[in-house]
């Protein structure tokens, strides 16, 4: 009797905690969405609040996204898409090669390179922004797509993940390929790469998300208004002379949507992508 009673109390505590935290996680999305439908003046007066005039909600702000500020928002969107796609594709190509190379072959310097990968993984990029900025100026990368992508295209986290994945590839295939006269790169691209597809899925999503949301480096390397990505563009709307909430909220909502869709389609790949390194031990 008492143990059953205890169990019930336990269950109530568990669900109550889970519900409260879930609410905490979801409430901001609700308010971002509602705020995107409200006139910006109300946001300046009241901030984000519980007092919502539901009859005044409308889609006008979304129309402003296309028309307002000479259609700058769609331009930011295009920039973000181009940068994210290019960054993801090149990053997957290079990091899978490196990870595979580290996993399959034995060669001089292998351990050193792998240790460097691990060390670089542990160093925050923020430390490098100043010298990287100087470097970007001297090799003419400022204010270009290339400048955003190039310094961070060979991501150590992805290398680590691909290496772990490639360790379990069947070596017999390597020998079989060699006997058939395939070169090492042909073996990689035609035999091994297809076997690594799940890893490409997880890393592709991780890379696309971090590129889409990337803030610190693009903030520094992108200068002109029409070159900005979404996070930097949205940030630039907040000025000392007035905040364009009419544009900010729908802009923020639209920027979250593509990642949301990816997440809903392939939740598993997201989660396995994000636990890289967590299962190192």
């Amino acid at each position: 009797m008492t143990s059953k009673y205890k169990e019930k109390i336990g269950a109530i505590i568990i669900y109550l905690t889970l519900l409260v935290v879930a609410l905490f996680c979801l409430v901001p999305f609700f308010f971002l969405l509602i705020s995107s439908l409200r006139p910006g003046v109300e946001m300046i007066q009241n901030g984000i609040s519980f007092q919502i005039d539901f009859s005044a909600l409308n889609l006008k702000n979304y129309w402003l996204l296309v028309e307002g500020k000479d259609g700058i928002y769609p331009l930011w969107y295009i920039n973000s898409v181009i940068i994210t796609v290019a960054h993801t594709v090149f990053s997957l190509l290079f990091t899978s090669m490196v990870g595979y190379g580290l996993a399959i072959y034995n060669f001089k310097g292998k351990n050193l390179i792998f240790t460097i990968v691990l060390v670089v993984m542990m160093i925050p990029v923020e430390i490098l922004i100043l010298p990287l900025y100087k470097l970007a100026i001297s090799i003419d990368l400022i204010d270009s797509y290339m400048g955003v992508i190039l310094p961070f295209v060979v991501t150590p986290t992805c290398i680590f993940f691909f290496r772990q994945y490639a360790m379990s590839l069947p070596r017999e295939l390597l020998d079989a390929g060699r006997i058939d006269g395939c070169g090492e790169f042909k073996i990689f691209f035609q035999i091994m790469m297809p076997l690594m597809l799940p890893a490409f899925g997880a890393m592709g999503i991780l890379q696309a998300m971090s590129s889409w949301n990337s803030f610190v480096w693009p903030l520094i390397v992108l200068r002109s208004t029409d070159m900005l990505t979404l996070p930097i563009g949205l940030q630039s709307l907040i000025t000392p002379y007035g905040n364009n909430y009419d544009l900010l909220f729908p802009g923020a909502v639209m920027s979250v949507i593509p990642i949301m869709i990816l997440f809903i389609i392939n939740q598993k790949a997201f989660i396995s992508g994000l636990t890289v390194g967590g299962v190192k031990g």
């Binding site: 901001p28 308010f31 971002l32 901030g47 609040s49 949301n213 990337s214 996070p231 909220f249 979250v256």
Partner: peptide
């Protein structure tokens, strides 16, 4: 899944100085 700017937008205004903020 959100960028820090989107999160910042919410928290900036939810922690606004007005009496009416969340």
């Amino acid at each position: 899944l959100t960028s820090v700017i989107v999160a910042g937008l919410f928290f900036r205004l939810a922690f606004g100085e007005q009496e009416t903020t969340l």
